[in-house]
Design a protein around this nucleic acid. Structure first.
Lengths: 260, 260
DNA sequence: ATAAATTTCTCATAAAATGAGAATTATTAA
DNA sequence: TTAATAATTCTCATTTTATGAGAAATTTAT
């Protein structure tokens, strides 16, 4: 264990299911002497990446809330897209969950979501949640932007049920790429359907998607054109705003650099 | 620079105002050779605490979104209080921002907020935001729970305008402690007033507050009793739920320990 | 295609992390 | 309160890792 890994390994123990750990538990889990873990944990508490809770338990610290906030208020994709999610929800013909997701390393992560107040079911689409790479329209509208070697690498990390499954997936991807949008049914959550369009910005290295998720029960065929129209319109708007934000950032850096 | 500090110092450069940095900029700013920074940044990108953006810029990475999510879904205070903020907003006689904040190290941080849809002004009360320790009802309802040496230490970190200011603050604190709630006017944002009650849980080491912020212009004296009644009721409810969550956690750890 | 900027690599040296166990401090129970 | 136990910090010799200067390679811009 060395470098940042030393700290990362500890943080990675914390999850929704298990959000507090004692030093001894960490020590056992990582097979590392407790005197070492005590030292490391103390460091991380000082840095506010962990905080000591009751008993001798430790929890994730406030640093994550702080930095998350900075991202929310400065990430180009979130800044550009967040305000449109609610509008999209309001203009959709039926109650929906609307999601901005992007490729982060080898994962798709939801970075912003807005659920209509009337949407009842709990969904897997929530900010911060990692999504499966090969299931759901949200992810497909992201993967379909990737080609060549990069696509191959990503795909190879996934567990397909069979070779046929894989071939089919790639075929669908090609089709979706032509159509410019994705549709899936029940791939992530039972009883839900998803529609998605791609969002990207080369200069900022953003590979993302905008999607609307509906209850299958609410859905009628006549809704489809409106849904696609909405997604396409807002998708383009988001891209436009990302560009504007990019220009702002450029300008800002230019200024601060010339001042220096 | 050693240990976690090495990484923390880099992360601390990132802010809402300046959310992307090049290695060279970091290197200059921290007065550390760029070959060293390149190595460290690479590590952090691998760990998803940073991500490379356009040009040669780096941004905060997805790890923060992920861990923030884990906190949101597992932090006892957030879990217990979040669902009540909207209810509180709906029951308040006038449009409001409702806030859960807690003491984190030597800072007060907002950990959840709900703004009535009709509330127009932008406020400083947003999840993840660090609040001034000695201004605003939100913070006072937190500080007033602290006594003795700990209070002295906290207070000594603050810049009071004068000795009188400090004495007054401590006097007010005593008063508020007796009354059981706090009120301030325009201390954090001009034109806004705040009401707050304390929330705490010794076993979990939580020192927090629940507060409602209103436009001064909307406020009438007759609203006051309702506001206090709401805050008190919901404050107690939140504490009750924190206790229940605590019991759940205890039970969970008991189970996982005995299985092991 | 060339120049410039960015990033990685190498390696000797300096610095820091490690872990066993002792010492101290908190917590719990009698 | 006291005794017992658990949690945390400390110490230090040893091992491991980080450092930084500059060369080399790669990427990006002209």
């Amino acid at each position: 264990m060395s470098g940042f890994q030393r700290y990362k390994k500890i943080l990675d123990l914390f999850s929704e299911e298990r959000s507090s750990w004692t030093v001894l538990e960490i020590s056992k889990s990582l097979k590392t002497p407790s005197s070492t873990i005590y030292r490391i944990v103390r460091e991380m508490v000082t840095a506010e990446f962990l905080e000591s809770a009751s008993g001798s338990y430790f929890r994730l610290g406030p640093a994550f809330i702080k930095f998350n906030r900075i991202i929310t208020f400065s990430d180009p994709l979130v800044r550009a897209g967040q305000p449109f999610l609610k509008k999209l929800a309001n203009e959709n013909p039926i109650t929906s969950v609307n999601v901005l997701a992007r490729l982060y390393g080898n994962n798709v992560m939801c970075v912003a979501d807005y659920k209509s107040p009337t949407f009842k079911k709990n969904t897997s689409y929530q900010r911060g949640k990692l999504m499966p790479l090969i299931y759901g329209a949200t992810s497909k509208a992201i993967i379909m932007q990737i080609t060549g070697k990069r696509l191959e690498n990503l795909i190879n990390l996934e567990n397909f049920k069979s070779d046929e499954h894989k071939t089919n997936f790639l075929k669908e991807l090609k089709n979706d790429r032509k159509k410019g949008y994705c549709f899936t049914e029940g791939q992530v959550d039972k009883g839900l359907i998803g529609f998605a369009v791609s969002i990207s910005n080369k200069k900022l290295g953003i590979v993302a998607s905008l999607s609307s998720i509906f209850n299958l029960d609410d859905f009628l065929l006549e809704h489809e054109p409106i849904i696609y129209a909405n997604l396409t319109t807002y998708g383009l708007l988001v891209e436009k705003y990302i560009n504007e934000i990019f220009d702002d950032i450029q300008k800002y850096h230019h200024e601060t650099n010339s001042i220096r």
